[in-house]
Each structure stands twice: as structure tokens, then as C-alpha cells.
Nucleic acid binder design. Structure first.
Lengths: 334, 334
DNA sequence: AGATTATTTGCAACCGGTTGCAGAATATTT
DNA sequence: AAATATTCTGCAACCGGTTGCAAATAATCT
């Protein structure tokens, strides 16, 4: 059904190579030849088969976009930015949903079968083993929103989750809270671990502060709500660092339903600054993660790595900022 | 770098065809041969190149997943369900972001270059011209969440938006509202037009009801908020059918900020029943769209159409239900 | 104009697989 | 055991392009 190179060549009365060259830029074709071929191509409605050409060029322009975060609203924006950014560079995102996948073997095989030029891992929860498995398969990898190690083995772009944890702790201290809590996401998520570590590290310099830690089952409204209801039954802290915004909003709902007031009785600070956080019936104080910059930078890094496949792995860190809203009491006067 | 068929054949000491057959099911290979080949393949870490084979088989198992709804939280779930559902059938979603695209030419070309086996258009706002353009390119198309015409030219799976509009109108009538409004999404969106048409149709049977219509700039919180603020300045209706949930939540925020109470002063019914609608600090009465069923059915329909490419276009309609929450006053006693 | 150099062009082989066909190897039948 | 029917296997051509190489054309220089 689709028109092939050969048909165009025949109609234009030239060789197949000539047609091929008119459609590969940088190739040597005379203007007259180009005109002839383009005319024939137009009349036939020809457009070259990217897959066939990938066979010889070794480039598909396919980029695996793998994620397992299909329940966090910020990731819709992440996908939006990634797809547009990749498209703008002529790259095609092959979306891979890794929810419930524990072993990288299958995804790796699949991505190799489709000869992707690179893989973007967009996930805050996938263990680094996945990225490494892709790299070991010889594919350039950028892990966005990943956790950074001191010696990155693949490119990582994101925030420093430990620093975010420290920032959360500092913010709570500034507000004069003396009993604080970390209400994290699922314990196995890399982001949770890192944020907790930072949170603890910062507080360790303040021995007078009482701190507690617990984990919700998932990064979800219900999990946050459930966990906060549990916490409120016993002696709750004065303020919590919620694992992320969705979780924090769930916690907020628990607080209100328990007849308590936020921030008067219990304070909350979230993380992400997702769209809903600023909705005025939520109005969540939170730590903002610069998503747009992270995605843009990830795409640039991927493009650069496609050029130079031996590029040394690097970590690109973006800083977070506190977004003041209504779920934490004001800072103490200095 | 990657291992090829030939290398496996050499190592196993057999012909290339033999190796190929081992990896295509339904092909005739003896057990001893299969064992030999599989051993060699395992040792070399071979897995067949799907793109190369697509050249001769004519099937890539690539499915274009095209959408322009990257700001509506329900679409995150839609993408989740689609990617998993497609993956489960061995199909690979090639994600295409059509935001800001007004002409189907480029996307069509791109999808043809990558020889997708089919296209799923997942959008409630794209005009039918896009689906038709894909179909005209000879690719099987399923338009999910699309608007249905009486004579579908491509497969359409979704709700009957007109019926949803009627349902909204009926619901408002049941509650005894006599001055009602339609606060739609952007006027050009197909879903908005259909919902409005149904809303009007239902009310036309009730000449005593005063009805008004207006449109927000987008399906977004801010647009809904802005439009409701505008409406509240003049003489507002007693209750509104909000174009979708996000819009309705924006409207809700405007109502509260204006010192009014919902549902006491102004009622709202949304559409979609997205996750946040049930968050208790929102608690939006809304019309539920059965997303999961729509996606599942779309995938089945796509799979069936891949089998029989001449399948006659059909429309699959799922019904909506009202989800009672807190933004509409109770129904009148009968 | 003739020699020299730079551009174009077509040939043919190749990218990594698949598949119709015919001969070889097995299995089944009588 | 011979004849017949089945199942396997390799050959070679093909899928839709690309590209090194050498011949053919065009451009530039004396």
C-alpha cells in the first residue's frame, strides 16, 4: 500500500540511490535531480520508511520513555513536556509502563528489539538497577527524577532528594515546631529513602527536637489519609513533612475530618508543588521541584549523549524552593 | 554491537532460515534444531530485531497513541490503562502529543514513516478530521473519548456526550433548580459542543426553566475559576453543569472565594469523576465516565481491527452515571 | 580548447530478517 | 521392505532503504 523508494525512482526515471539521497540531508544531489525526484515523490505521496532506513543507518530516533509513576499528577506534565521536547528534536517516544515490573529483563529485551536510540527513565521510585540494566544493554540512558549517587553510573537529572529532606526539616524548625514527623511514601521508593535521610541528617544537629518517622503504603491520597488517621490516634507531631503532595493532601483530609485545623493543630509541608496544591480549597505549603527545567535538561543531555555515546555519566541537580501557602504556621520572627 | 541472526546461525552451524523459524511461532522446526538454535542464541544473548522483521512481515506492533489532552488528570489514568493494555497484547505505544497541532499532515506522515500498525486517538477535544486523516492513510483507527456521529467513519469508543448533557440537565431539574447554566469548556472542543447540545435539548421540553450558556477558555482550573467569577458578578444561575471536573473545581473555588456556599447558594455538577473529585475537601457531585471500560474496549476493538482490516466502523457507547456528592442540593421528594 | 578538479550519478552489496520452493530426512502405510 | 505421505531444512530472492566506489558530468583553470 505505501509508496516505496523504487516506485519514486521509476517514475522519476532515476536510480534508487538518487531518490535516497534527495531525502537524506548532507548527501550530494544536483538541483535538477532534486526537483525531478521531489516532483515524483509528491505526486506519489511518498515518504521514506524510517524503520527500513534505520537498518543501515543504525539510528531509529526512537527513545524509550519508561516510567512507573502513572498515578502522580505531576507526571502528566512530565509526559507532556517529554513528548513535546522529544518531538521537537525529531525523536519519537516509545512509552513503556513499568508498573508492577520488578525485573528489568523484559523491558530491556523489548527496547532492544525495537532498537531504541536511547532510554529516558522518568521515575522517582524505580531502583537504579533498571537504569543500569538499560545501560548494560548498550543504550544511552538518562534517569530523570532519579536518586543520585555520589558516583553516578548513568546520567541522572533531578533534585537532590536528601537536600529536599533537609530543606523540609529546616523549614519546620524555622517555624518553631519542636515535635516534627516524616510521613513518607512507600519505604522502598528511592525518593522516600533519600528524603528521609536528609530529614534525619538535618535534625541530628538539633537534639532538642523530637522527631518521628513513618511510611504510607503508596504515594496516593488514600494512603496519606490512612496513615495520618493512624498518626492522629496516638500522640501526633506538631507538623509533618509529607512524602509528596498527593500524600500530603490525603493527610490534610484526615486532619480536617478529625475535627482538627491545619495549620493550627497540625502543620503539613508537601513536595512537588503539583497543580492542585495551589487550588484554594487545598492551598498546600510545599517544596517546589522544577519539573520543566528537569525535563528540558534531561532531553538536552539525551541529545548530547546520542551525539557522543561515550559521554561520561553526569548528575545534574536542580534546587528546590519552599512555596509558602496555608498549611504551615508562619516563621518565627528573628 | 547487538547480536544478529547470522551470528547465531554460524554458531549453531545451521542456516539463517532455521534461526528465523525458531523465533517465529507457527513455523516448522524440529525439536533438535530448536534446541541447537536456542542454545546458541542464549549464549550470544540474541533477540530478534523487530524492526527488521517488520520489513517483510509488514507488521511492527507499533500503535500510535495520539492525544492532545495532557492537562486533564483523567488522562494520566487513560495513558496508564492504554500502555498496560497494549503491552499485554504485545503492542508498543508510540506516544504522539498533538497539543497545538492544527493540521493532521505532519502527524500522519510521521506515523506512516514509522509504519504503525494502528492508531488510537485518545482525545475528547480533537476534531474528527484527525481520525479521518489517519484512516485515509490506510491505518486502522480507534478514536477513544471521541464524539460520535450517526454515521461513524472510524471506530469511536466513549460516552454519548449529548446524552451526558441531557443527564446533567435532568439531574438539575430533579433537584428543583429553575435557573440553570451550562459552563462549558472551550467552544471549539467537540465534547463541549455535544454536551451543550444535549443540555439544551433536554431543557427545551421545560419552557419554564431559565437556562444560560457560556464557555471557559480551556478545560482548566483557572479557566473555570475565571469564568465563574465573571458569572457571579451578574445574576448567576442556581446551579451549573461544569464542562468537566477540573473546570468545576475551579468554579467551586470561585464560589467559595466570593463568600458564597456551594450547594446552598450555587450548585455544581461536573463530568468525569476524576480522582480528585472525591477528595473530601472538594467532594464534587459529578457525572462518571467509565474510563476503564472505554479503554479496555478500545484496545479490544483495535486488536480486532488489526486482525480484520476491513472491519466496518462502529461506535461503542458506554453510559454515564451521576455520582452523588456534596455540590448539588438533594433531589426533591417525589 | 584541453587538461584538471570537483560534483553527480548508478551499480551493487549490504542492513537484519522472512518466506516460497524444492530437495532431504523422517514417519507412516501397505 | 518398498512406496507414499509428512515434516524439516537450506537456497535464494525479497522487504525498503543506504552507501562505498568508480564511471560520467559539470565546473574551473591554463
Amino acid at each position: 500500500m505505501p509508496v516505496t523508494l523504487k516506485e519514486v525512482a521509476e517514475r522519476a526515471g532515476v536510480s534508487r540511490s538518487a531518490v535516497s539521497r534527495t531525502f537524506t540531508d548532507g548527501a550530494s544531489v544536483s538541483v535538477s535531480m532534486r526537483r525531478k525526484v521531489e516532483k515524483a515523490a509528491r505526486e506519489l505521496g511518498y515518504s521514506p520508511n524510517a524503520l527500513a532506513s534505520s537498518l543501515t543507518t543504525g539510528r531509529t530516533k526512537l527513545i524509550g520513555l519508561v516510567s512507573n509513576n502513572f498515578h502522580n499528577p505531576i507526571f502528566l506534565e512530565v509526559f507532556d513536556l517529554f513528548t513535546r521536547g522529544l518531538q521537537d528534536r525529531g525523536l519519537r517516544p516509545l512509552l513503556v509502563n513499568l508498573s508492577e515490573e520488578v525485573d528489568p529483563t523484559n523491558p530491556v529485551r523489548m527496547l532492544r528489539q525495537y532498537s531504541v536510540d536511547g532510554v529516558v527513565v522518568a521515575s522517582s521510585t524505580l531502583p537504579p538497577g533498571f537504569s543500569k540494566a538499560f545501560r548494560d544493554a548498550g543504550v544511552p540512558v538518562v534517569h530523570s527524577f532519579g536518586s543520585l549517587s555520589s558516583a553516578p553510573e548513568v546520567h541522572v537529572v533531578g533534585i537532590d532528594n536528601q537536600e529536599a529532606g533537609r530543606l523540609a526539616a529546616r523549614t519546620l524548625l524555622e517555624r518553631g515546631y519542636t515535635r516534627v514527623g516524616f510521613m513518607g511514601g512507600p519505604e522502598f521508593a528511592t525518593s522516600t529513602q533519600d528524603r528521609l535521610a536528609g530529614f534525619i541528617a538535618e535534625l541530628s544537629a538539633h537534639p532538642t527536637i523530637r522527631a518521628s518517622y513513618s511510611f504510607a503504603d503508596a504515594y496516593s491520597f488514600d494512603a496519606g489519609r490512612k496513615e495520618m488517621l493512624r498518626l492522629l490516634k496516638e500522640e501526633p507531631a506538631q507538623a509533618y513533612f509529607g512524602g509528596d503532595d498527593v500524600l500530603s493532601i490525603g493527610a490534610l483530609s484526615a486532619i480536617k475530618d478529625s475535627g482538627l485545623d491545619c495549620p493550627k493543630d497540625v502543620g503539613i509541608i508537601g513536595l512537588n508543588d503539583m497543580e492542585m496544591a495551589r487550588w484554594n480549597n487545598i492551598n498546600l505549603t510545599t517544596i517546589r521541584q522544577p519539573i520543566r527545567q528537569i525535563v528540558t535538561s534531561s532531553i538536552e543531555l539525551m541529545a548530547a549523549t546520542l551525539e557522543d555515546r561515550d559521554r561520561f555519566p553526569e548528575a545534574r541537580i536542580f534546587s528546590c524552593t519552599v512555596v509558602e501557602r496555608g498549611t504551615l504556621r508562619p516563621a518565627l520572627k528573628a
